[in-house]
Structure formats: C-alpha cells, structure tokens
Amino acid sequence: MQDQPEEKEHRHFKLHKPYGYLSQFVCEHKNKKLLGDLYDFPEGTMAIGRLDQDSEGLLLLTTDGKMSEQVRRKEVEKEYYAQVDGLITDEALDQLQQGVEISVGKQQYKTHPCKAFRLETAPDLAARSRKIRDDRHGPTSWVSITVTEGKFRQVRKMTAAVGFPTLRLVRVRIGATFLGALQPGAVEEVEDFALSVEGSFQ
C-alpha cells in the first residue's frame, strides 16, 4: 500500500495595503508597486479579493484556494472607513443603507442594502503617503460602510451616487478579522481568518 502524500501546510497572512500599491504580484506595466515589494511571501500566495491602487487597509492573502473561496462568500462582511467630501447627511446615509444605483461596466446596478453610519470623530489612522486635501477646500467627514458584495470601486461609486465623493478609503474589517493596529505595509502571519458572519443584508 502506497503512503498517502502529506497534505500541504498552507499559510495565511493579513496585510495593511498602503496607498499606491496594486493588490497583485505581477503586472505588465513597469514601475508599479506590487505586494511582493512589501514582504517575501511564499510561492503560491494569492490575494483574496482586491483593493484598488488608491485604497488602503486590510488585505488577506493565503496559499490555500479553499480558504480564498470561504472569504469571498457573499455572507462575509467587508467594512470600510471612507473620508468623504462634505458633511454627510442623514438622508445620504439612509440612501446608502437602502442601496443606490451605480454603474458596473456599461450597465446600471443597484447595490444591496448595507450598513452605513457617520463616524463622529476621525479614525486613528496613519497619515497617507499622498496628502488628502486640507480644510481650506471645505469640510470633510468620515463614514463606516459595511457591504457583502464587491463590485469594482463599489464604495467610491456609492458615496458619489449620494453626493459625497470619497477622498480616502480604508478597509478595516473582513468578517471578524480586523485591521487593528497594523501599520501601512506591515504583514502579520496568522493561523486562520476569523470569518464569523455578523449579519446578512440579502
């Protein structure tokens, strides 16, 4: 009887993706900042989902395709802190919660209901490498938005749809895994990801 091959021991990481980096390891365009520039990840590591180049915050990575599928389930919440242009109103927050029309490709799409509330004080985040415009150009405010879907640049499109364009976007939570005190560019290896579902908006 032949011995069964040993099951590969997978590795999992959480990363604070800084502003200006792509959420990938390979890019056909030169002079782009990639994830491999931040840490010596093992062969076969993949990012679970993406943050666009201008967005920051929590990015999960793994060598396990099954783990990636679990994280990308529609039940798993993703929470973002968005700094928006202007003092966001209760009416705009209500619209976000109920779902708004955004463009996805060449089609219009109504986002699923979500959680959205105003942050009364600015979150304690490290300064961004590229400065946000200052108050001389008008006030800004912060909002927490939690979604269970991930269309391209969705949160930015949502805040723009209600009249408050996003100036800075930071993902702070996926499921029950938090960004916490992880600093921009820092990587933490973890045993697994806490993905307890805290509620569905379906």
Rank of each mutant, 00 (worst) to 15 (best):
Q70E: 14
R133H: 07
S144H: 09
G105R: 03
L119K: 14
E6P: 02
Q95E: 13
Y21L: 00
R173A: 08
E191G: 13
F152C: 03
D3V: 06
G65M: 07
D54W: 00
W142D: 05
V71Q: 05
E191V: 15
G86P: 14
K110V: 15
K151W: 03
A127V: 14
D192M: 07
L22T: 09
Q83P: 00
E79R: 01
T177R: 06
E43H: 03
R153T: 13
A122H: 10
F117W: 10
M46S: 00
A122K: 12
L93P: 04
K115N: 04
R153V: 13
V147N: 07
Q97Y: 02
A127S: 14
A176P: 06
K106H: 07
V104M: 07
G105T: 10
K106A: 08
I48Y: 04
R73S: 13
G20C: 07
A160N: 13
G99S: 12
D124M: 05
E6T: 12
L167K: 04
S103E: 15
Q4A: 12
Q83R: 11
V26H: 11
E149L: 04
K33H: 13
R118C: 00
D85R: 09
S129K: 14
Y21M: 01
T166F: 01
Q2N: 07
L35K: 01
Q83L: 15
D3N: 05
V76C: 04
D124S: 13
A186I: 00
T45N: 07
E56M: 05
T140V: 14
G57S: 08
T45I: 08
R173F: 12
L34E: 02
Q2L: 03
Q95R: 15
D85M: 09
E7G: 01
D135M: 01
T45H: 02
A122L: 11
L125W: 06
L182D: 13
H16V: 08
V162F: 05
R73D: 11
K74Y: 12
V155A: 08
